[in-house]
Write a protein that binds this DNA or RNA. Structure first.
Lengths: 348, 348
DNA sequence: TTGTACGCGTTATCAT
DNA sequence: ATGATAACGCGTACAA
């Protein structure tokens, strides 16, 4: 044995005075080994600093205990939360994560899938960058279990985990309506963007069945600055009399403002605070997307918390389950609902 | 050959009517193969959908073309930028990334290193979660090349890549001072946090040598909302006369506000704008940490852009280089300086 | 319970 | 230039 190389099972066996088979069994526990040899092998392993070679093991077992994760190269909170949760789910199963980024085009995406298969990953989790062209990447997986997260490409080859945003939107509306809300303005969503349009429809559907009037503010970017601009426009039209207190009497604007995310809501809130408009007395403010789920302490903004940790773990669960039932090709679709987290910006 | 399994080199060889050795050479190009057989093998490979088994290859070559990345489980922009840049650096070398998270404790950290070694990664990149206890994790790497990023644990076992923050801080101060700055407030840093304390010291050192008065605002979280709150406090104390214009005459606050990051600065700026305080005429605003290096177009906030992409690539470079020169144990330390990016929030 | 020997899929060595 | 074969390190079927 070369001193610079890692010791092998044969080294351990020799040191313990047993066969490699016994050494293997003693360390893996796959088959019973007498207490005496058990001890000797463990001792030899420890003293040599033996570490099982996962590569050789994978070749023999035809399983790498590894999952590939393919993500589009956008730097968003969404994706980094997803990485963490997938990693967490895998760790619980003693598996490893191989990470690859795709450019928004699907060619690259497919190369990534191919490369992961060459590494013989046991499964692939993919957030498809392109809704049109990613299908072939997914189908390239062939017999390797694959699950989509966050976005769906229609195919019966793969399971998928997504968000049930509409349901959560409904919950948010219900929360607002319970507090005598009759009118509502949406800030930071852009009707010309597909995903936003769906959210607006969901808000409308939930609100109008309760006879709440819904309007969409002029489009502003879904960041702080956009929230401020929209907030100023809304407030300019709505403040009936300066200095008339912070209650509803002095406010002629909507009963509620629903923002695309926490940043936008922060901007709106800042404007209202400076104008002396009472929140939540005069107007309630809520956010459709919690950007800092890990943030500590005082929750000021009522928002929908997206279940990132659960998404990753669920994806891993689907994958492992699919691996256990090879040949079972019924595509499963799991939807997780964001959770309503009440804050000080709406009434109880 | 089982139809559900991946075809092997033997399958390709058989189909092409050549030996496995020839098939291997034809596909890898390691040795010359006659044009005729070359074609036959490629054709057979294509028609069978052959994909080289990276596991078997790794076992044979004793190289996995894989690098492990160990990160503390904090959800920060820092880490997600680092992941991307490491991934990018590896991709350029046709290598893969195995990602593992450590809890802040070092035990877990060490388990991660062990597990990566069991997978026979060719190298490890680690951001040590604990400055005291992580040393043994690093030393556990043994003969496997390891490089630290972002933080340093003193050891001669490993190369490291870090930021020269103090130098960049000095540049920022110099930029502000050149514009008649006499007083300066720091927002979003917490003196009780080690890393923040060092930044504050660096700011003080740079500023005081130029006789600029430095104070630290009450601690607020280093996020948007914290910036808004701090901005409101500073403005409330500083605005001498409402409606007196946007120049310096109506501003009794500090000449400059240095924020922990872009989010905080955004909050501060928003408040100042709403109050009608002229930026940068009355007060300059700058950020110590650019959170959106990829952001397009108009740079409004003067900030320090951290070299994330270079950090990851540099770490990979060190690793590959170390792998090429085994036994060479001279620890190399690379420092990269953040870059000052002037924006509209400071004077030219 | 323990040991022997084969095979996982690839690549390098050696012989032709 | 091509082919036969050994070896990488492990797990297990089979024999004892």
């Amino acid at each position: 044995m070369d001193a610079s190389a890692q010791p092998t099972l044969a080294d351990v066996a020799e040191r313990a005075g047993v066969s490699v088979a016994t050494a293997s069994r003693a360390l893996s526990g796959a088959r019973p080994v007498s207490g005496d040899l058990q001890r000797k092998v463990r001792e030899a392993s420890r003293s040599l600093g033996y570490r099982r070679n996962a590569v050789a093991s994978a070749l023999r077992l035809q399983r790498t205990e590894t999952v590939g994760l393919v993500l589009p190269r956008y730097t968003t909170f969404f994706l980094s939360a997803l990485i963490e949760s997938v990693s967490d789910g895998l760790e619980r199963n003693d598996m490893s994560l191989v990470l690859r980024y795709s450019e928004p085009d699907a060619v690259h995406d497919r190369d990534n899938v191919e490369s992961l298969i060459a590494r013989r990953v046991d499964g692939i989790i993919i957030c498809p960058p392109s809704l049109e062209a990613s299908r072939e990447s997914i189908e390239a997986a062939g017999a390797v279990p694959i699950v989509q997260v966050g976005r769906f490409v229609e195919t019966d080859q793969s399971d998928s985990v997504g968000l049930d945003e509409d349901r959560a939107t409904g919950m948010l509306i219900a929360h607002l309506i319970a507090q005598e809300t009759r009118s509502l303005v949406i800030v930071g969503l852009d009707e010309t963007v597909t995903a936003d349009a769906r959210r607006i429809r969901a808000l409308r559907a939930a609100a109008e069945s309760a006879q709440v009037e819904v309007s969409v503010a002029e489009v502003t970017p879904a960041v702080l600055e956009g929230g401020i601009r929209a907030g100023e426009r809304i407030a300019a039209r709505a403040v009936r009399s300066e200095g008339a207190g912070t209650g509803r009497a002095s406010w002629g604007g909507p009963d509620a403002i629903v923002c695309a995310n926490d940043d936008v809501a922060s901007g709106v809130l800042a404007v209202l605070r400076m104008r002396g408009v009472g929140v939540p007395e005069a107007v309630q403010v809520a956010s459709l997307l919690d950007l800092a789920p890990a943030a500590p302490g005082d929750r000021t903004i009522t928002s929908l918390r997206h279940p990132w940790p659960e998404m990753g773990r669920e994806a891993v669960r689907l994958l492992i389950d699919a691996g256990a039932r090879p040949g079972d090709r019924v595509a499963r679709r799991v939807s997780l609902a964001p959770q309503l987290v009440p804050g000080a910006s709406t009434r109880r």
